[in-house]
Design a binder for these strands. Structure first.
Ligand code: TTP
Ligand code: MG
Length: 627
DNA sequence: GGGCCGTAGGCTT
DNA sequence: TTCCAAAGCCTACGGCCC
């Protein structure tokens, strides 16, 4: 028996729009005086009946099941279980508390209505008008004037129009945002050379030293910094100052448009601050997690995490529980993590739904071209290619292959992508995407110069679609702070070492590992069905016997890869026939029955945790697994 | 029992 | 009529291969 009691029914009753919380469930700055009920109703009216709506309903049903399952698990906990987990939780909390570090001062900055502000700056006639940056199908952000009408980021444009008839639209212009972002970063640099940029418009600065060296307070730094940014960009921003990043981020949102909020480095102040703070304000806790915690355990504020600590430990994975408890204690990242390199690069396009295969292949071709360009622009190659599909009814699927060698040429990409897509056809799609991961710097590779030869392909600029093509590549995006900083304990730079080293080491191994293995696929499926090579060879040592492609001396590696295509081609064709694919179906079957883990038997208390561990990332947290 | 792969899905801007 | 994005990161988990 848990705290499941006392949670409101959440039903739709005679006001269906009230239950359609599908999006926009989080409070956003600038939405204070908005008639939420009315907005909700408009959104509901415009959404209901659509494919999108149907899919949202389906997803909601799934999370409802998750919640039911958790409740059941919770109800099955015995007194013994509970007291056990209470001890576990208390121990955890003590450890976490012991790791509290109040010696650092962190500042988080967040530009105000960034894209919209930039557009207004470039075109002053937009000033004062309700503005949406985006298209009729999607709004990236809205000016504060527009927000008064309920218009906001991630809202489809046509709904924005309904909410705000005079809404002005401007298409995104990423070069501009990148430019202004760089200007702000020049300012950040002066306050913390190791600042962490988490997006074009956000960054964390460790201002501890500035405060000490100049003998000023965090508040003074914030004021000065914001002023400097305004001076040098003409844009306003908001700032939050706190002893750790997690809290600083929350603080920067408090006085959002052009304001700041400072939380002193004082334990009591932090605990008080966190005591009434809605969990949804914490980065990493989104709509689903919020609902689960509230509807299963009755948790809605951070402090309540501590009251339900035992249940959190009983129901969620260790990582998740640590994260939750950290939140309850107001702990977050305090050490500057290692510089992080990108892990994937991707592009995707939404289009009018179609099941026309030739049309789909055309689009795939364009995606491949796009991805190659982006990869080559950054001098990267990758081993895992993932095809993303969104069906006409908004269901998302991904299909991936991992190759033996690193690839980045268009034809390589296209060969694999095509196979992946073929295996799914026929079907009607509204989006396709390609992502390359397991990246590796091209430069580190001895057998360099790759693309030259394979670039002998179309170069035509595709039809830039409706707009919304990101290009945030630019600078040093140190994505997602992921507060996990493994505690200073271990000398200097302990954490990052592992993963980053991993990458670089495998990079060095790369050349060696591309032995004469003909099959470029790592997947055992292909290997298994092999043993029947289509005997591709090199005429005169450099002309492909199958397609006639020429790869002169000096392109040994390319020849190997090229051979791989042909082999993989034949192998995968066989494979596609013997429906090895559709693992997704198994998964669905799995879903039907609420996960394996039965409630915790008293004996193997541990096993209860093996249950359905809910995600939750460790953003911002400290969660020092002390290693 | 660890490590890798593939898939789904959550979260953020 | 149009009419719900794009890019990236992370965890969980089952299956497979050692
Ligand atoms: C939230 C969100 C933002 N963005 C882009 C547009 C935003 O201007 C930019 C920064 O995001 P935010 O900082 O979340 O939003 P904002 O700066 O526009 O407004 P404010 O901070 O004052 O509340 O990122 C998207 O493209 N999609 C999104 O879903
Ligand atoms: Mg912002």
């Amino acid at each position: 028996m848990s705290a499941a009691a006392g949670t409101p029914p959440e039903g739709g009753g005679d006001r269906p729009w009230q239950s359609y919380h599908t999006a926009y469930t989080n409070a956003k700055a600038g939405m204070e005086g908005v008639d939420k009920e009315k907005v909700q109703k408009v959104i509901y009216e415009m959404s209901k009946g659509s494919k999108y709506f149907e899919n949202e309903q389906r997803k909601e049903a799934v999370t409802k099941q998750k919640i039911e399952h958790l409740r059941a698990q919770c109800a099955a906990l015995t007194d013994n279980d509970i007291s056990h987990f209470q001890k576990v939780a208390e121990k955890k909390m003590l450890e976490l508390e012991a790791s509290r570090d109040l010696s650092k001062i962190w500042l988080h900055t967040d530009m105000d209505a960034f894209y919209a502000a930039v557009e207004t700056l470039e075109n002053p006639s937009l000033k004062g008008k309700p503005l949406a940056v985006g298209s009729m199908s999607m709004i990236a952000t809205a000016s504060y004037e527009a927000r008064k009408f309920g218009v906001r980021a991630a809202m489809p444009g046509f709904i924005g129009c309904k909410l705000c008839p005079g809404l002005v639209f401007v298409r995104p212009n990423f070069e501009r945002y990148t430019h202004y972002s760089e200007l702000t970063r020049k300012v950040f640099q002066r306050y913390d050379p190791n600042f962490i940029a988490t997006s074009l418009d956000e960054a964390y600065l460790n201002i501890t030293n500035v405060c000490i060296e100049r003998g000023i307070t965090g508040e003074e730094v914030a004021t000065e910094l914001r002023s400097a940014i305004y001076q040098e960009t003409g844009l306003t921003c908001s700032a939050g100052v706190a002893p750790n990043r997690m809290i600083a981020k929350v603080c920067s949102d408090i006085n959002k448009p052009n304001g700041q909020f400072i939380l002193p480095n004082d334990r009591e102040a932090v605990l008080t601050f966190v005591s009434t703070l809605p969990i949804r304000k914490i980065g990493g806790i989104g709509k689903v997690t919020e609902q689960m915690l509230r509807q299963v355990l009755g948790i809605s504020t951070c402090q309540e995490m501590l009251q339900k600590a035992a249940f959190l430990c009983a129901l969620f994975s260790e990582g998740s529980a640590d994260f939750f408890l950290s939140v309850g204690l107001g702990l977050g990242g305090t050490e500057t993590p290692e510089q992080r390199q990108r892990k994937s690069i991707s592009c995707e396009r939404t289009f009018a739904a179609t099941n026309d295969s030739s049309l789909l292949f055309e689009k795939l071709d364009s995606l491949a071209e796009n991805l190659t360009d982006d990869l080559q622009k950054e001098g990267l190659k990758g081993k895992t290619l993932t095809l993303k599909l969104k069906t006409a009814d908004f269901e998302v699927r991904t299909r991936a292959v991992t190759t033996r060698n690193y690839i980045n040429s268009k034809e390589d990409i296209l060969v694999y992508a095509t196979k992946l897509l073929k295996a799914e056809m026929p079907l009607s799609l509204r989006l396709m995407g390609l992502r390359m991961s397991q990246l590796h710097d091209e430069k580190d590779d001895p057998s360099t110069s790759t693309q030259k030869t394979l670039d002998i392909f179309f170069r035509s600029s595709n039809d830039q679609q409706d707009f919304f093509l990101h290009d945030e590549s630019c600078f040093i995006p140190e994505q997602r702070s992921f507060g996990n900083h493994s505690n200073e304990a271990v000398i200097s730079k302990p954490l990052g070492g592992t993963k980053l080293d991993d990458v670089s080491s495998s990079a060095k191994v790369a050349p060696a590992e591309k032995l004469n293995e003909p099959d470029n696929l790592i997947s055992p499926k292909a290997v298994a069905s092999s043993s029947k090579p289509d005997q591709q060879s090199w005429i005169d040592g450099y002309i492909c016997s199958i397609c006639g492609f020429e790869l002169p001396p000096g392109f040994e590696e390319e020849r190997l890869e090229h051979s791989d295509f042909h082999l993989a081609e034949t192998l995968q064709q066989e494979e596609a026939v013997d429906g090895t694919r559709h693992i997704s179906n198994e998964r669905l079957a799995d879903r039907e029955r609420p996960c394996s883990t039965t409630p915790t038997p008293k004996k193997k208390l541990k096993s209860s945790k093996e249950g359905k561990h809910i995600p939750i990332d460790a953003f911002f947290t400290k969660c020092n697994k002390n290693l």
